[in-house]
């Protein structure tokens, strides 16, 4: 297993916890008050409650069940039922390697995390989930790279096979409704990083060059929704 994206950085605010699945590994991903992101096995060391149901307290994640607090290193440092007790060092959440780069949160559940190098001057567009395998989703984003409302002349480039990242270069013809994408001297690029949730669910995390306009980003968001429909229809017709 390799590094994969789990969320756009924008969609995990300070003091928030979310659930993410990566090739069937269930995890709790959370951001502390100071902005540190952690990805842990979604299982409280105490009684196995999902940690994604918990809540962030400053630099700690608290379990929703009995309120045990874990710091950013995963160590339990507070047990509400025994406030005087210093919890043994052995009580520790199972940590995965996580990093943020190019506006995306990347995780590797089994080894070191090595994100794909993408331009840093990008903005978040959206994450869209597709009910199909990663391979079918990847093919659909490539095949439909010139589907309305982004059209013609789009070049695709597979930036990385694993994790799978596709780039769309300089989309859109002269009569497009999204003017900033046509600027030949400074073309907009779009990056699509795929997360394998499991065999039948994939999430596409989409970013675009910083200078893409609001209209461009909305067009991209609608396009991604259309690609999803196409990908899912193709699954339906082969079943």
């Amino acid at each position: 297993m390799t590094t994969q994206p789990v969320s756009l950085s924008r969609d995990l605010a300070e003091k928030q916890v979310m659930r993410a699945e990566l090739s069937d590994v269930d995890m709790a991903v959370w951001r502390s008050a100071s902005g540190v992101v952690s990805a842990w096995e979604n299982r409280c060391p105490h009684r196995g409650m999902r940690l994604s149901h918990g809540f962030v307290r400053g630099e700690s994640l608290a379990c929703a069940y009995h309120g045990w607090h874990y710091n950013c290193e995963g160590a339990c440092h507070y047990i509400p039922a025994h406030p005087e007790l210093e919890p043994p060092k052995t009580i520790k959440a199972n940590l995965y390697n996580v990093t943020e780069a190019s506006g995306i949160i990347w995780v590797n559940a089994v080894g070191t995390v090595s994100p794909v190098t993408l331009p840093s001057n990008t903005q978040a567009v959206r994450s869209v989930s597709v009910h199909c395998s990663l391979e079918i989703a990847a093919q659909a984003f490539k095949d439909y790279c010139s589907l309305s409302p982004i059209t013609a002349n789009t070049r695709t480039e597979v930036v990385s096979e694993s994790p799978y990242v596709l780039a769309l270069k300089a989309p859109l013809p002269a009569n497009s409704p999204t003017p900033s994408m046509q600027d030949k001297s400074n073309p907009v690029s779009v990056f699509i990083a795929l997360q394998r949730v499991n065999q039948t669910t994939t999430v596409a995390h989409i970013t675009a060059s910083e200078h893409a306009s609001e209209t461009d980003c909305i067009a991209l968001s609608r396009w991604a929704n259309k690609v999803r429909t196409h990908a899912e229809v193709s699954v339906g017709s082969t079943e």
Binding site: S7, L8, D11, A13, M18, R19, A20, E21, R126, S127, S129, V197, T201, V203
Partner: peptide, 9 residues
């Protein structure tokens, strides 16, 4: 809500 980040926010 795992697959719906905008709804979550």
């Amino acid at each position: 809500h795992t697959l719906y980040p905008a709804i979550r926010g």
